[in-house]
Simulated scan of single mutants.
Amino acid sequence: MIRLSPASLPPRTARVVSLFLAVAGIACLVWGWHSHRSAPPPQPPRAESLPRQPDAEAGSRPGPSPLPESEPLRVRIPRTGVDAPLMRLGLDRDRRLDVPPPTDRNLAGWYKDGVTPGDTGTALITGHVDTKTGPAVFYSLGALKQGDTIRVVRKDGRTAVFTVYAVEVFSGTDFPDEKVYGASARPELRVLTCGGGYDRARHEYLGNVVVFARMSAIA
């Protein structure tokens, strides 16, 4: 299980949403399956945890023009075989981002009060790494590498294609809100799940895997 509660989530373009939340990062609780398995979910290798600046990496090549707002319907990640529907995620009574229900292991969610993937700004997708019945939608998120693609199918019939430029692991007690959720002048995407080691005594992950990607094509 994951619980996302950053100090400031990316607001929807042209509609500023001020969020004052108590705890930064993602508090990761596990439903029990982790303690019975022998191998943890993959974590990014050291080379993948050194983010490149997207502007510098792209050089002078212009990216595709931002898309208008349109609800995302599915997320597809070819390297890990993810092909999952997306549900809307809002804030719970504690002003934390809610999570997809653990009854569906192949379900992710997007922050509905942020920008939609493909629009200008930083869009956010999150999902479970595992549940009490086994691996979940983002179990292999840490295996992504620079240059991999993430495809987000939108309600308007277009697919926003994002290219990964960094994969990082952050401690749950020292989560860099601005680095992860900060505003962007181009269409960016963050995909998050639990990771960074596991505390068997408390049955919880110690941190978060975060994938940084920018829109590189429209299909």
Results as ranks from 00 to 15, higher is better:
residue 56 A to D: 13
residue 13 T to H: 11
residue 88 R to H: 06
residue 30 V to H: 09
residue 49 S to D: 12
residue 76 R to Q: 05
residue 36 H to M: 08
residue 22 A to T: 14
residue 35 S to W: 02
residue 44 P to V: 10
residue 87 M to W: 03
residue 73 L to C: 04
residue 88 R to C: 09
residue 83 D to R: 04
residue 56 A to L: 14
residue 70 S to I: 10
residue 66 P to I: 07
residue 80 T to N: 02
residue 21 L to T: 15
residue 28 C to E: 09
residue 37 R to G: 00
residue 51 P to Q: 10
residue 55 D to L: 05
residue 72 P to V: 00
residue 50 L to G: 01
residue 84 A to M: 02
residue 21 L to V: 15
residue 29 L to H: 06
residue 21 L to G: 15
residue 85 P to Q: 09
residue 85 P to E: 08
residue 49 S to C: 15
residue 21 L to F: 02
residue 65 S to C: 03
residue 54 P to Q: 08
residue 36 H to G: 07
residue 52 R to K: 11
residue 26 I to G: 01
residue 52 R to E: 15
residue 50 L to T: 13
residue 84 A to V: 15
residue 68 P to K: 00
residue 87 M to P: 01
residue 54 P to D: 09
residue 34 H to D: 10
residue 76 R to M: 04
residue 72 P to G: 04
residue 71 E to I: 05
residue 17 V to F: 05
residue 77 I to F: 04
residue 39 A to H: 12
residue 57 E to Y: 07
residue 47 A to R: 15
residue 41 P to Q: 12
residue 66 P to W: 00
residue 84 A to Y: 01
residue 88 R to A: 15
residue 73 L to P: 00
residue 30 V to P: 01
residue 49 S to R: 15
residue 73 L to T: 11
residue 22 A to M: 08
residue 21 L to S: 15
residue 70 S to P: 01
residue 84 A to S: 14
residue 77 I to D: 02
residue 16 V to F: 09
residue 63 G to E: 04
residue 75 V to K: 04
residue 61 R to W: 01
residue 17 V to K: 07
residue 46 R to N: 05
residue 49 S to W: 05
residue 13 T to Y: 08
residue 21 L to Q: 13
residue 47 A to P: 01
residue 82 V to F: 01
residue 83 D to M: 00
residue 70 S to Y: 06
residue 89 L to D: 08
residue 56 A to W: 12
residue 22 A to F: 08
residue 13 T to P: 00
residue 41 P to T: 11
residue 61 R to V: 05
residue 38 S to E: 12
residue 44 P to R: 07
residue 68 P to R: 02
residue 77 I to Q: 02
residue 58 A to K: 02
residue 48 E to Q: 15
residue 15 R to E: 08
residue 31 W to T: 10
residue 66 P to E: 02
residue 74 R to Y: 08
residue 45 P to I: 07
residue 21 L to R: 14
residue 36 H to Q: 14
residue 28 C to K: 07
residue 49 S to M: 13
residue 58 A to F: 01
residue 87 M to V: 14
residue 84 A to K: 01
residue 42 P to I: 14
residue 53 Q to G: 06
residue 58 A to V: 02
residue 36 H to N: 08
residue 55 D to E: 07
residue 74 R to K: 05
residue 62 P to E: 01
residue 29 L to F: 09
residue 85 P to D: 10
residue 33 W to Q: 05
residue 26 I to E: 06
residue 79 R to C: 04
residue 80 T to E: 05
residue 31 W to S: 09
residue 70 S to R: 07
residue 67 L to I: 03
residue 49 S to N: 10
residue 29 L to E: 13
residue 66 P to Y: 03
residue 51 P to I: 13
residue 65 S to I: 06
residue 85 P to N: 10
residue 25 G to K: 05
residue 26 I to P: 02
residue 48 E to F: 05
residue 89 L to W: 01
residue 27 A to M: 05
residue 74 R to L: 01
residue 54 P to H: 14
residue 83 D to F: 11
residue 28 C to V: 15
residue 37 R to W: 10
residue 39 A to E: 11
residue 27 A to Q: 13
residue 23 V to N: 02
residue 19 L to I: 14
residue 47 A to K: 13
residue 29 L to W: 11
